[in-house]
Design a binder for these strands. Structure first.
Length: 567
RNA sequence: CGGGGCGUGGCUCAGUUUGGUAGAGCACCUGCCUUGGGAGCAGGGGGUCGCAGGUUCAAAUCCUGCCGCUCCGACCA
């Protein structure tokens, strides 16, 4: 491709809307343009990168027996109503109506559609396992789209669905995908880590997220320094902390003036924080929810949501708390409140003689004991893991890192086959539900994550496997016939060898072309200018290391290929 | 949802406080000159000042409403 005709409008200045590196660089280097909030046009360079990532994904999916299909983006409401998710999905779903007023949505995911598809065609265990996938746009009307392609409302996703005859089959499919995902992100040149994820409302074990490690990541992960445990902090399961038995003392109210925080109370009463219980109040479509954890712990909102039937939850307001019969800053576990769901962390149930709010301004209760003094509506693990908790598996030390979630694998089991009636006959002629899994990769997010992990002050540094072009050939002075002729010759020769190359044939000054080459991030740049042309040399510069090598202009190809191969 | 900031040519922004002929740099077009890290000179094209009302002789500027973008918070009582 000749740069003069390439649609890659580079910008000298950073568009004001972009905050993170990948967003800024994708805009500046002429890869994307915004069409609406969280919705982007992919320009030729971006489209090449996306296709390369998708190609790697396809190869690895096909190796594991995946078959590519293409399902519609527009989906009828009925199947979502059947699975129950039409109402569950909430505002995140883009909904529309046809001319007959029939409801549809833009697919945020395809479990319903693919299950409906397969149940119509698969009758026998002989047709299983079945692995179907597609690569297409997905639509999610995010509360707050941000960071360019990292959290868009329209994005490209690879989604594969596995159908097996039983748990054992699912385990095999799951492992295949886990392995394939590891290979995919390796081939994309990314530093990543698979982490355990809670399978949420679906229950049971069986979900991993693939995190590209980057400071700008939205997710926080913890990992063990001793074993291979790694988990999303939002999802890491925690064992309750055991404490020695104690004789239950009589419960009593104590005045605690001006002690709205746990620290105030414990300082005032001279109690260790481990002897206190604090609350976070949420308001939801199911009413007010009070979530209690030990004073030095943190509430994990995701776990709270998973432990209830609530769909949308938000922090409760002061007036809501007062109306329910409690007091902001002084909320307690004791009964006597109106229309409140009380959720208590498992560790709290092991505590004795603790202090918590008395539901009255400036009053706390001391010597509160579970069972004797209160019975929560729900007892479950709702706290956020901390480094101090240590590895929940081996007791080793935990460390934290930030990550970008680029993929997730998930055991669905029979959640959808049951709701949508996807069954087959086994060899005994007995009807069985298909056992399903789903496996997603954010293709457009992977592109952004690759940039987050590979950039410097001059621009993008593409991993070779997903670079839009491998080499840029830059004649320093396009009007110098000798230089330009040589550049064209080298360009033609590289193309003939199947090496993706851009010839920067613009009548720009050298500096402009160098800046653009760095910004766009070609792994290699071949410079042809007066310094080298007279000596019959080509200058080859690696974007990543800045290393420069001079090659014989008459016989450079083998060496150049070697340099490329080593990148 | 709440709170802050912003909306002026393709991009970055000035001008708004104190109403009075729409500006700069970059980008773009033409010519000259220059050619190893975003050159220089000369000439030129391009803007319903987010939208809709209102006030005024006069509105980018003041008032009201709406829309869009963006950041922060969803923070533990």
């Amino acid at each position: 491709m000749r740069f003069s005709s390439l649609y890659a409008p580079t910008l000298r200045e950073v568009p004001a809307e972009a905050e993170v590196a990948s967003h800024q660089l994708l805009l500046r280097a002429g890869f994307i343009r915004k069409a609406a909030g969280g919705i982007y046009t992919y320009l030729p360079l971006a489209w090449r990168v996306l296709n390369k990532i998708a190609q790697i994904v396809r190869e690895e999916m096909d190796l594991k027996g995946g078959q590519e299909i293409a399902m519609p983006i527009v989906q009828p409401a009925e199947i979502w109503q059947e699975s129950g998710r039409w109402s569950v999905y909430g505002d995140e779903m883009f909904r529309l109506k046809d001319r007959h007023d029939r409801p549809f949505c833009l697919g945020p995911t395809h479990e319903e559609l693919v299950t409906t598809l397969v149940k119509g065609d698969v009758r026998s265990y002989r047709q299983l396992p079945l692995l179907l996938y597609q690569v297409q746009n997905k639509y999610r009307d995010e509360i707050r789209p941000r960071f360019g392609l990292m959290r868009g409302r329209e994005f490209i996703m690879k989604d594969l669905y596995s159908f097996d005859r039983d748990e054992a089959g699912l385990d095999i499919s799951y492992q295949k995908m886990y392995d394939a995902y590891s290979r995919i992100f390796e081939r994309c040149g990314l530093v990543f880590r698979p982490v355990e994820a809670d399978s949420g409302a679906i229950g049971g074990s069986g979900s991993h997220e693939f995190m590209v490690l980057a400071a700008s990541g939205e997710a926080e992960v913890v990992y063990c320094s001793a074993c291979d445990f790694a988990a999303n902090t939002e999802k890491a399961e925690l064992n309750p902390i055991n404490v020695p038995d104690e004789t239950a003392l009589p419960i009593q109210n104590v005045a605690t003036p001006n002690c709205p925080t746990i620290k105030d109370v414990c300082d005032y009463l001279k109690l260790p924080v481990e002897k206190s219980v604090k609350a976070v109040a949420y308001t939801s479509d199911k009413g007010l929810i009070l979530a209690f954890v030990r004073g030095d712990h943190e509430v994990n909102e995701v776990k709270v949501i998973n432990s209830t039937d609530a769909i949308n939850i938000a922090m409760a307001t002061e007036s809501e708390l007062l109306a329910a019969g409690t007091a902001p800053g002084y909320m307690g576990v004791l009964p006597g409140k109106k229309d409140v769901t009380i959720i208590v962390d498992t560790t709290v149930m092991n505590m004795h003689n603790f202090v918590c709010g008395a539901d009255k301004q400036d009053v706390h209760c001391i010597n509160v004991n579970p069972g004797r003094d209160f019975q929560p509506d729900i007892v479950t693990d709702i706290r956020m893991i901390q480094e101090a908790d240590g590895c929940q598996r081996c007791g080793g030390n935990l460390a934290k890192a930030r990550g970008i979630e680029v993929g997730q694998v998930f055991k669905l089991r029979t959640k959808y086959s049951e709701k949508l009636g996807a069954a087959f006959l086994d060899e005994n002629g007995k009807e069985q539900l298909m056992v399903m899994g789903c496996y997603g990769i954010g293709v457009s997010r992977t592109m952004a994550a690759a940039i987050e992990q590979n950039n410097d002050e001059n621009g993008i540094i593409w991993p070779k496997s997903i670079a839009p072009y491998q080499v840029a050939v830059v004649p320093v002075n396009a009007k110098n016939e000798e230089q330009f002729k040589l550049a064209e010759k080298v360009y033609e020769e590289l193309i003939a060898q199947g090496i993706e190359t851009v010839l920067d044939d613009r009548a720009e000054r050298a500096g402009v072309k160098f800046k653009d080459a760095d910004l766009i991030g070609y792994p290699l740049r071949v410079t042809i200018g007066p310094k080298t042309v007279e000596e019959g040399k080509l200058e080859v510069k690696a974007r990543k290391t800045g290393e420069v090598v001079l090659l014989d202009a008459a016989a450079y190809m083998e060496q150049l290929k070697e340099i490329l191969a080593k990148l």
